[in-house]
Design a protein around this nucleic acid. Sequence first.
DNA 1: TGGTACCAATTCTAGACAGCATGTC
DNA 2: CTAGAATTGGTACCA
Length: 789
Amino acid sequence: MNVEELSRLPAGAVDHFRREGIEELYPPQAEAVEAGATDSESLVAAVPTASGKTMIAALSMLSAIERGGKALYIVPLRALASEKKAEFEAYEEFGVTVGVTTGNYESTSDWLATKDIIVATSEKVDSLVRNGADWLSDLTCVVSDEVHLIDDRNRGPTLEVTLAKLRQLTPQLQVVALSATVGNADEIADWLDAALVETDWRPIDLRMGVHYGNALNFDDGSTREVAVDGSEKQEAALVRDILEEGGSSLVFVNSRRNAEAAAKRLGKVTSSELAAEEQAALAELADDIRDDSDTETSADLADCVEHGSAFHHAGLSNTQRSLVEDAFRDRLLKVISATPTLAAGVNTPARRVVVRDWRRFDPSAGGMAPLDVLEVHQMMGRAGRPGLDPYGEAVLLAKSHDESEELFDRYVWADPEPVRSKLAAEPALRTHVLATIASGFARTRDGLLEFLEATLYASQSTEAGRLETVTDTVLQYLESNDFIERDGGDGSAEADDGAFTSAAALAESGGRDESLEATSLGHTVSRLYLDPMSAAEIVHGLERADDRPTALGLYQLVSRTPDMYELYLRSGEDEKFGELYYEREAELLGDAPSEFEEDRFEDWLSALKTGKLLEDWAEETDEARLTDRYKIGPGDLRGKVDTAEWLLGAAESLAAEIDSDWTVAVREARARVEHGVGEELLELVSVGDVGRKRARSLYERGIETPSDLRTADKGVVLDALKGEKTAETILENAGREDPSMDGIEPKSAGSSTGTATAASSDGNRNDESMESEATDGDADDGQSSLGDF
DNA sequence: TGGTACCAATTCTAGACAGCATGTC
DNA sequence: CTAGAATTGGTACCA
């Protein structure tokens, strides 16, 4: 089908596509149009990566807009939201407007209401539904990208429930679900009352194969010799082989450490193939990486990059990830060794994809578990760059003939698994049941069950009554924590309190249609987007605090909620943090689990570790020291700080809601974690362009508040802040009338440093105390076990 | 003394959404 | 039912 044949699109759209070089629709796209994509028809497109799924979405959305409607594009990752936004912004050329909204992207509802296409993460959409954004009812077309993620244990249910709610809000809604090829696309289509477009077609050929010995055997029967010489690893031989013909490669491994080690080794392969100008550009890129963060991970990455290779995992900062991805797309980097982050993220195709590790550590499986076929196919789907490569190659590595055969059977010839709803898992249901009640989607138990019937789970469920049972368990939990109120009709339920009596009330009210209502606290929890269990933990912790909680107490509290992904306790650290626990037990909020409940006590300690990380951060320990001390990457640190900031913001609202005395303490702890500063710097840091470093520098010179900035000796300010320009901007931000630094010379602060030096060494003292604790802990080892026995 | 080659024991394990209101070095 | 790569530590060996 030629683009000229497309009707129902906004004027100028067809011209736009032609200018982009799009003449003929790909077969799946044509099929989607025939199925009614441009005609308000819902459809599920289960097609391989890079076969033009976005175009199907675009055609649907543009035709919806042409009819006067509004479109929503749901993505699974923030990074994809920006990627899609950039893509759709090209349509502004013919008058279609685009907005993005994610957790950290600025957005007001009014502003979004004026946009034709809105890109958002599934959680953000869920949140918008909960908060009743009125423009949602104007939607006529919703696209759900990577809809197979409904299968995801953690985040799948959100997408599933959100789609169900959007459909309920707007009965005529066109739903376009884009999926990887999965085992049961037909089931998803049935659920969404949608037509199904399913195909294996790809714009570039993808050859899948297995490398064993010195041969690479492909699924089409062809063979290519790739010799592994000497002590070289298979992946090195494969990378070199394709590099010699000018192709880049992606190597997927199963751990961060493996990714880093492989990138280091592969650097030896790539460095010999670099042109002089490439080396210069790579050196520049390496500097950008070092500039972004002064940590060991950064230094290692920069060293690799200078050789034309890189690693990629969630320990990298977002900036570093983008730098690596962009440089790879620009063909500057020749190889990336990555954890699965890359397969799910933004588009980074390569001529050859090597899936080195096909098993991954999975504690629930008790060891290494094979990757899902779907996951491996997603990685392999990254092979082949449209317009650049003649074909893509995806290679698995085998160490024996048997393994080679197993890999063919398991992954090359295998169909992907079916998508299975995970909604009936209690944690998921806990959150979504509360939200459904709070936002008025259901007002009775029957109404709730009826709504849940509209989910994919219900359509897949074979076990009758399971959903109902779990729902009742969840309702009971929500009621006993005062998030909802139930009224069985005879008025007795209202008087009930506590889990036992409400269980009785439940039994009593049996089949009767109870009314369900969120309490004020329940509404707050739903609006804040908290897992009810997190909220309960926080509320309980705050209620149990007799004295003003310390920062560490609050940090440990939010760190032990299910919304915070705790740091892992390394060997020996249980003792180290056990000791810290005894030292600072009094600061922690709520009851610690008994030491004899090993698992729970360990969780408590990892929360303490995470809390301690946050405390160190709020005591101005620098990034390099923290990443080293906690053995994490810069990306992890920023992620933890981000999450803590969010949770403490929520905790502040909760504190206000329950009339806690500690609202101010929570706010201060949040502000300290946000800026990474001690209490005494909070005022300074509120001035624009003043962060933790500059604030400390000013404070050391006796400038302790914004008003000090307005009156301080400019020479001292300049000495604290270095650059003239910076100093001027900051003085201006502080509201100084004469910010000009003309003719000012830096001047040391002189005698007023007394207190300031004490303050700064305070921060350092903390660093040292932690380190000496570590050594103390080791030294004590023998003694404490002597004491135990 | 120092370098290294090699083997055995030990260690450790992927990822990333959200409120609210604005801005680091 | 279930692993395996990388790192660390120790030893032998040689210059």
